[in-house]
């Protein structure tokens, strides 16, 4: 079976992740949506790497994982800071910022 199917799977996961970012008001859940999007990109890279028979795609996916890990550290640190100050991480709380 053609590995292209995995790319389609990646597209579906990517869309679900983006919907989560747009829909969810909880910062952590929205952030998990971003993680899913990055993973979907990884799946596409690995599938293309299989299709073309070279390793570059896998190495890129590897880099993305490292970058995502670093991003998670900073993101969760920001979320914790916001939580300490406001006792909530909802993106909808009466915000000081106006849209």
């Amino acid at each position: 079976m053609n590995p292209m199917n995995y790319v389609i799977l990646a597209a579906i996961l990517f869309s679900i992740g983006s919907a989560a970012v747009l829909l969810r008001r909880n910062a952590i859940v929205a952030f998990m949506g971003v993680e899913l999007m990055l993973n979907a990109a990884n799946l596409a890279l690995v599938a293309f790497s299989k299709i073309y028979g070279h390793l570059d795609g896998q190495i890129m996916a590897f880099f993305v994982m490292v970058v995502a890990a670093a991003e998670v550290v900073v993101g969760l640190a920001i979320i914790i800071t916001v939580f300490r100050a406001r006792q909530t991480i909802s993106l909808d709380e009466p915000a000081e910022l106006k849209g």
Partner: peptide, 29 residues
Amino acid sequence: LSQEAALKYFLLGAFSSAFYLFGAALIYG
């Protein structure tokens, strides 16, 4: 206000870089 701005910048920034990445993956494909 500053922390809220950071959270917003972070989430939207990560969202847009995910778009960038998926785009790069498609171009690679």
